[in-house]
Design a protein around this nucleic acid. Sequence first.
RNA 1: GGACCUGUGGUGCAGCUCGGAGUGCACGCCGCCCUGUCAAGGCGGAGGUCGCGGGUUCAAAUCCCGUCAGGUCCGCCA
Length: 579
Amino acid sequence: MSTNYEATSLRDSLCASVSVAHVGQRLAVCGWVAKRREHGEHLAFIDIRDRSGVIQAVVDGTVDVRNEYVVRVTGTVSRRPEGTVNDKLTTGEVELTECMVEILATAEAPPFQLDDRVDIDEQVRLRHRYLDLRREQMQKNLRLRAKVNAALRAAMDRQGFCEVETPLLWAPTPEGSREFVVPSRLHHGEFYVLPQSPQIAKQLLMVGGFDRYYQIARCMRDEDLRADRQFEFTQLDLEASFVSQIDILEFVSQAVLDAAEVATGERPSTIDTMTWAEAMNRYGVDKPDLRFGMTLQDLSDVFVGTEVKAFSAPTIKAMRVPQGAEFTRSRLDALTDRAKGLGAKGLAWFRITADGVDSPLDRFLSDHERDAIRRVDDAQPGDLVLIVADDYLLACKVLGALRVELGSPPVSQGPHRYVWVTEFPMYEGLDDDGNPVAAHHPFTMPHPDDIELMATDPLAVRSQAYDLVLNGWELGSGSVRIHRADIQSQVFATLGITPEEAENRFGFLLGAFKYGAPPHAGFAFGIDRLVAIFAGEENIREVIAFPKTQSGADLMTGAPKSIPDKQLKELHLKPVKGA
RNA sequence: GGACCUGUGGUGCAGCUCGGAGUGCACGCCGCCCUGUCAAGGCGGAGGUCGCGGGUUCAAAUCCCGUCAGGUCCGCCA
């Protein structure tokens, strides 16, 4: 028998570890009073709860404990009498008898019930997070997270990666997401920032000869929060030298599949790969959810020279909505508004009937066109077909968004479908000055076949950037980095960054690259999101011990808060009135 | 910056459309009873600024305006 790590000087066992194997032994357990059931002055039952679960203690007589009192109970492990076994409890066959109950701490009645009989308002849970954490679901989620972390570390270690910590107080590099700013006490009017990612630091580690680096890193971004976004989040961050894209995909796959195995008990066989162009074409998003169909169909050829004025556009994209014919007119109107909100000129809908289509546009359709609509994605009577006619990418994006809104299963449902999305475009759109905007970051290596296009058609240049997607969630992204000064200058030039600007912002990185930078590539993915999906949670707050609300507040500590004038003065800060 | 949803004893809800006494349900809490319960059971009790402010009205939880908090989303997140 292995060493009993559960035993301490106060207890012999965790509550849920008590079993028929211990019958006759005298044991001490420690925990919280989960429930008390009194039967007069001769008999009482107390459920003792610790992180493992619950054990029933039988008390001959009365005992003055209330819910959530912290107690140490010493009793004899006994089989429950005939007919009183509780199948719902893992410890339901046994109980502690002849109990001695010591009160280690009393407790007030908690502000909400800690069982899972009702959903408690998240505001109340967050205000008393330390109580919320006692709940079984939160215990499960955070312990799952710990297991995933351990699996990731083991996988990286096994693959020869070296864990290196990088600074939290870093230099501002105005680019990308908004940074959290930390005022310097010793340097008047100057600031550190908290890293939005260890991107530059890890590239410097490559120059420094750590050819395989990883870190479970906290990243901070001062951007608006969402269900899958907190100010601070945790990434498995990695970078390797003398590698190409395929090597990175393999390293990350190993780590993610190990984590999946630990979390779900099943190891997915492979991770599919899809180009960005294919993802946009078939799913209308760069993070396709492969758990369900409703793929986008192209009807552009069908509607060449059509009578339907609304369909005189470069691209006609269609999508079948199973059972969508039952949508009410007001629902369809709302969908149309949604499509317009996403930038489309409109949304055409066709209820598929047994002998045709039901649509305001029906009378404008040729037989050929009507047939094509009825065949979209093997449509059946009762289905709905939605069509967006617009520029290619916009048509894809609008239908892609509707696909997610109409078809996404709950996070807890369905298989885990991982997919690598590769060959992202190097640039996405133009900024106000007409310069291309980097899709990933400015150190991303262009696709080797597209380098000539940099000067002539930058928006057509593919990059060696890739995302890992799971069930429609972007887990993370990475790229092959530029390690050659000539290509880096060319990219900066395309982005409209002058050499002076580049020197000012990234001088220390460019300087480092002068001394022999190995070819390198890397990746980073969000552990909060991965664990949320493993846990079947729609919201990453459920897998974070102390999360913030959507407005960035911590309801428990009250942060953010003002600080005393003395402290402000020390930091050379002065509040601006009315700002 | 914007859209939508929510806010009623400690907790979860109903009441709001069609204004009429803080009305109801479940859990929890407090007291008493109860020797095999485990969502224990029975009896009794306490507990409310209907988020906040203003307006309309004889009268507002209910209608209107504003505001705050929480949530979902758009923008934003290289």
